[in-house]
C-alpha cells in the first residue's frame, strides 16, 4: 500500500509538470502584456520594469527561471501588487476558499448520500421520484443562475439571510454560498448513491444479512454503505474540480475575498504571475486530492489494499 502510494506520487510529477508548462505558455501567448495600459509608461521605464521581471528574456529562459523558482516554493512576485509575492496572495485568499469548499463538499456528501440511500430504499415510490427530479434540476441549472435566485429569495424577499459577505458576521453568511456551491454536487452524488445502492442491495451478501435477521438500518450501515460508496468515491476527483471552478463564480457573485475572486481579479488586471500561480496551485491541489481518493479505495476495498 505504501509502495503503491509512493508510486502514484511519483506518477503525479509529470502530470503537474505538464500543467505548469502548458499554463505558462498559454499565459505568455495571451495578447497584451502586464504593463500595457492606457497610461503607458515611458518606453525606458517599461524596459526597466521588464528587465526587473526578466520579461525581456526568451520564453524558454523565463520558463526555466520560473521552474527554478517553483522548486524553492517561489511563485514569483505579483505584477499588480508589488508589495506581495504570489505565494502571499494565495496565502491570503486560500483560507476563505478552503472553508467554503470543505463546507460545500461536506454538505454535498452528507445530503447527497442520505438522499440517494433514502431513494434507493424506496425505489419507484413517490419519495424516490421527488428526490430524483430534484437532482435532475440541481444538475441542470448552472451556479450563476442558482446564486442570484437564492439571494433574491432568502435575502431580498424573505430577509432570512444576509445578501453579501462583508459586514455580516457569523455562520449565516456562509449558508447561501455553500448551498449554491453544493447544490449540483448534492444532486449528482444523490443519483450516484441511489444507483450504486440499488445495485449493492441486490447482491447476494445482502440477502445473507437479511437472512441473519439484520434490520434495514444495520444492513445499510454495516454491509451496504461501504461498497455503495465506491462509485461516489471515484466521482470525488471531478467533484473537487467542479467545486473549485464553481467557487470562482460563487466568490465573485457574493463578494467573498477568496482565491477564486483573486483569480478573476488577476485575469482582469493582467496580473499574469498571480493567474499562473493560482492555476498551478489548484492543479497541484486537484492532483493531490485525487491521490487521496485513490488511497481511500484501499480503505474501503480490502482487495485493493493488498496491492
Amino acid at each position: 500500500m505504501l509502495r503503491y502510494a509512493l508510486l502514484r506520487l511519483l506518477g503525479a510529477i509529470p502530470t503537474l509538470l505538464l500543467v505548469i508548462v502548458l499554463a505558462f505558455l498559454m499565459v505568455h501567448a495571451a495578447p497584451g502584456g502586464p504593463f500595457d495600459d492606457a497610461r503607458s509608461p515611458h518606453p525606458e521605464v517599461l524596459a526597466a520594469i521588464e528587465a526587473t521581471y526578466h520579461l525581456d528574456e526568451p520564453v524558454v529562459q523565463q520558463l526555466g527561471r520560473y521552474l527554478g523558482g517553483l522548486l524553492r516554493g517561489d511563485l514569483g512576485p505579483s505584477f499588480r501588487y508589488p508589495d506581495y509575492s504570489v505565494s502571499e496572495l494565495i496565502g491570503i485568499g486560500f483560507p476563505a476558499s478552503l472553508k467554503l469548499g470543505v463546507l460545500a463538499m461536506s454538505l454535498a456528501i452528507l445530503v447527497g448520500v442520505s438522499a440517494g440511500t433514502f431513494a434507493a430504499l424506496r425505489q419507484g415510490s413517490m419519495t424516490d421520484r421527488v428526490v430524483m427530479s430534484f437532482s435532475m434540476t440541481g444538475i441542470s441549472i448552472p451556479v450563476f443562475v442558482v446564486a442570484p435566485v437564492l439571494v433574491l429569495l432568502f435575502a431580498v424577499k424573505l430577509h432570512w439571510l444576509p445578501a453579501g459577505w462583508s459586514g455580516s458576521a457569523g455562520v449565516a453568511k456562509y449558508i447561501v454560498p455553500v448551498v449554491t456551491l453544493a447544490l449540483p454536487q448534492i444532486a449528482y452524488i444523490a443519483r450516484l448513491t441511489r444507483a450504486s445502492m440499488i445495485e449493492v442491495l441486490s447482491r447476494d451478501f445482502i440477502r445473507t444479512a437479511r437472512a441473519q435477521g439484520l434490520g434495514t438500518r444495520a444492513i445499510i450501515r454495516i454491509h451496504a454503505l461501504k461498497p455503495a460508496m465506491l462509485p461516489v468515491l471515484s466521482y470525488m476527483g471531478p467533484a473537487i474540480a467542479a467545486i473549485l471552478t464553481g467557487s470562482v463564480v460563487v466568490e465573485q457573485v457574493f463578494g467573498i475575498p477568496g482565491l477564486g475572486a483573486s483569480f478573476v481579479n488577476g485575469a482582469l488586471n493582467r496580473d499574469y504571475t498571480l493567474v499562473l500561480g493560482i492555476v498551478i496551485f489548484y492543479a497541484a491541489l486537484i492532483i493531490a486530492l485525487n491521490l487521496v481518493v485513490d488511497l481511500l479505495y484501499g480503505v474501503i476495498d480490502p482487495q485493493v489494499r493488498q496491492r
Partner: peptide, 12 residues
C-alpha cells in the same frame, strides 16, 4: 446459501 463467495460480504 450456494456460493459462499457471493454470499459473504467481501468488504467486511
Amino acid at each position: 446459501f450456494q456460493d459462499p463467495m457471493q454470499a459473504l460480504n467481501p468488504y467486511l
